[in-house]
């Protein structure tokens, strides 16, 4: 597709997104806000899995850490959520850094199993430390703005999503992004040409944890009631499924996946208890038959007529 066409499409798409509060009713605006949360979560998880090849199962747990830290601080110390939000993100980043340093030296399996364990532990602690977290009852947290407006919250979420996507796009196109991709492609070869692979992974892991923590806090101050469900493995699974169904290792994939699954879950509401199962089956089918996800399929359709050897490079270095 021509570059100008692509830009035009992008502008139209953004235009529609910005106008959403005027097009949607209250309920669907709520869905749109949730979708934006998932867009951030899936995009930041994709930075790990899609660009550095690390499968973390603690992404939802980091969001829960962000939400609970921010919530608890704002409730108990009456600090403005605008400030506690940052605390939540920083604490999530610190946990990310610690976990990263602990297990990234030892390679893929260890990261996955440690993050899975960590995520279970966060879930258990939130459930059990009733006096601080209110357990399964859920913790009531103040509104970010001090007043309740879905439209305002939608624009805040949208702005944050833009900033994060823009940041991720810049990061991936930067020299750091190239390092990430070299580690994803071949760790041994990357270290043989001077790339500190452990450091690269720890950086990616910390950045993604910080983003998850921030998104979690933002989400919590919108929901006004946060529950241990935030850190559950089902929540983690949603993030993973969105990334895979949308297309891992691409910028637009997680966005497409998050929108697709959120809208789909609204339409299959009547089959409530089947939807995780359905998403699981869809993800397995996608991995098996269309590993590039929605974005991969789209590219296959639009690029099939052109020279297969010619590809669109993602980095800024073009010959």
């Amino acid at each position: 597709m021509k570059k100008s066409n692509k830009n035009l499409l992008l502008v139209i798409f953004l235009g529609i997104v910005v106008c959403l509060p005027f097009l949607l009713d209250d309920y669907w605006l709520h869905v749109a806000i949730l979708t934006l949360f998932y867009v951030i979560m899936a995009s930041s998880w994709n930075l790990l899995a899609g660009y550095t090849g690390q499968v973390s199962f603690a992404h939802a747990a980091f969001a829960a850490i962000g939400a609970y830290i921010s919530g608890i601080l704002s409730v108990q110390m009456s600090i403005s959520p605008l400030i506690t939000l940052l605390f939540g993100s920083v604490i999530a980043a610190i946990f990310g850094l610690g976990l990263g340093l602990l297990c990234l030296k030892m390679g893929g399996i260890y990261l996955s199993l440690t993050t899975l364990g960590f995520s279970e532990i966060v879930h258990i602690i939130i459930k059990n430390e009733y006096e601080i977290t209110r357990g399964t009852m859920g913790l009531e947290v103040p509104n970010l703005l001090g007043f309740y407006s879905k439209t305002a919250y939608f624009y805040i979420m949208l702005l944050v999503t833009f900033i994060i996507i823009f940041f991720l796009a810049k990061l991936i196109k930067s020299d750091h992004g190239l390092k990430f991709k070299s580690v994803l492609n071949d760790e041994l070869a990357a270290s043989s040409i001077g790339i500190d692979t452990v450091k690269v992974r720890v950086i990616a892991f910390t950045i993604s944890s910080a983003i998850a923590g921030f998104a979690g806090g933002l989400y919590g101050h919108y929901l006004l009631l946060i529950t241990p469900e935030m850190s559950s493995l089902s929540q983690m699974f949603m993030i993973l499924a969105m990334t895979i169904i949308g297309g891992m290792g691409t910028l637009s994939g997680p966005i497409a996946g998050a929108v697709f699954l959120q809208v789909l879950s609204e339409y299959i509401r009547i089959f409530g208890k089947f939807h995780l199962l359905l998403f699981g089956v869809i993800s397995l089918l996608v991995i098996k038959f269309a590993p590039g996800g929605i974005v991969g399929l789209y590219r296959k359709i639009t690029q099939s007529k052109t020279d297969p050897l010619k590809i669109e490079t993602q980095s800024k270095y073009d010959y």
Binding site: S182, N185, Y317
Partner: peptide, 16 residues
């Protein structure tokens, strides 16, 4: 690096 272009392959060395 299979999924990087030839130029990017070399660029990684220069960045490192």
């Amino acid at each position: 690096f299979p999924e990087l272009t030839c130029l990017e392959n070399i660029m990684v060395s220069i960045i490192g």
